[in-house]
């Protein structure tokens, strides 16, 4: 299944446009992604940084096939690409246990796999006492813990992680971070989106900086993150976001 060059995923000149609003009053057409090209190799951890609304989440959805690119090509050399989102398919009226199983299944596990991982996930989420209660009785932190623990245990050839490292209380957060670090440092290929820049420098082998739907810079994490932070500083100084940016 793997590509001779060890590539898991290639994007070539990918573009994605949508319009805001519908009807005769029209909407603005927004080019969310423009001419994006990069590839991800086996075992690699790739970071995505950029300001809110620069297209990071849209890019992840194009990669998983939730959105279809309008232009360019997305070539996948692996079977299972999972977007590790929190609380996939949760139903507030079902027990934590049922939600756990259905969520695993939406993320690609078989029912048997889900049931096998059940206890392990519950233990990690520290929800042993509540797992048979309906989800609507959970606090938002408990929900997020369950969601995160499900995501953590899912198998995927390429894992897309969208800003979910800050979940739960301080104790859980450090445990979650550690577990995720372990996962990322293993053979797992990951695309990581985060605003936690020191984490990105620690974890990633390569970082891509997105700005207004375009790749502004990519390469060595330390250098790219530094350039990005310097840019932020400058933008804040000016007082309003740069439109388009230099090409």
């Amino acid at each position: 299944m793997t590509h001779p060059d060890g590539k898991l995923l290639e994007l070539e000149h990918v573009g994605f446009t949508y319009s805001t609003g519908i009807g005769f009053y029209g909407g603005r057409r927004i080019e969310a992604l423009r001419d994006i090209s990069f590839s991800v190799h086996e075992g690699e951890t790739l970071g995505l940084i950029g300001r809110n609304g620069c297209g990071k989440s849209t890019l992840l959805r194009v990669i998983t096939g939730i959105f279809r690119a309008d232009r360019g090509r997305v070539i996948r050399h692996c079977d299972r690409i999972s977007l590790l989102a929190l609380n996939v398919g949760f139903d507030a009226n079902l027990s934590g246990s049922d939600n756990l199983v259905i969520s695993c299944m939406f993320l690609g596990a078989s029912r048997r796999e889900a049931q096998r991982m059940h206890d392990e996930i519950v233990e990690f989420a520290e929800l042993e006492d509540y797992i048979d209660q309906p989800l609507k009785t959970y606090s938002s932190g408990m929900r997020a813990r369950l969601g995160f623990s499900v995501g953590l245990k899912m198998n995927a050839d390429l894992l897309l992680v969208d800003e979910i490292l800050g979940v739960g209380d301080a104790a859980f957060r450090s445990k979650a971070r550690e577990a995720m670090m372990q996962r990322i440092n293993s053979e797992q290929a990951v695309i990581l989106v985060s605003h936690n820049h020191p984490t990105m420098v620690d974890l990633c082998q390569r970082v891509i900086w997105l700005e207004n739907g375009e790749i502004r810079d990519q390469g060595e994490p330390e250098r790219v993150v530094e350039a990005y932070l310097a840019h932020l500083e400058q933008v804040r100084g000016v007082g309003r976001p740069l439109q388009g940016g230099p090409r």
Binding site: R73, S82, V101, I102, R111
Partner: peptide, 30 residues
């Protein structure tokens, strides 16, 4: 590789029905 491009879905046919029936029984209970 090219043919996988447009139709690669996280959920294939077998998984679709597995999720479907699990969700169905859960919804009826919920």
């Amino acid at each position: 590789n090219a043919s996988r491009e447009t139709h690669l879905l996280a959920i294939d046919t077998r998984q679709f029905w597995a999720v479907f029936f699990t969700k169905l029984s859960m919804n009826l209970r919920s």
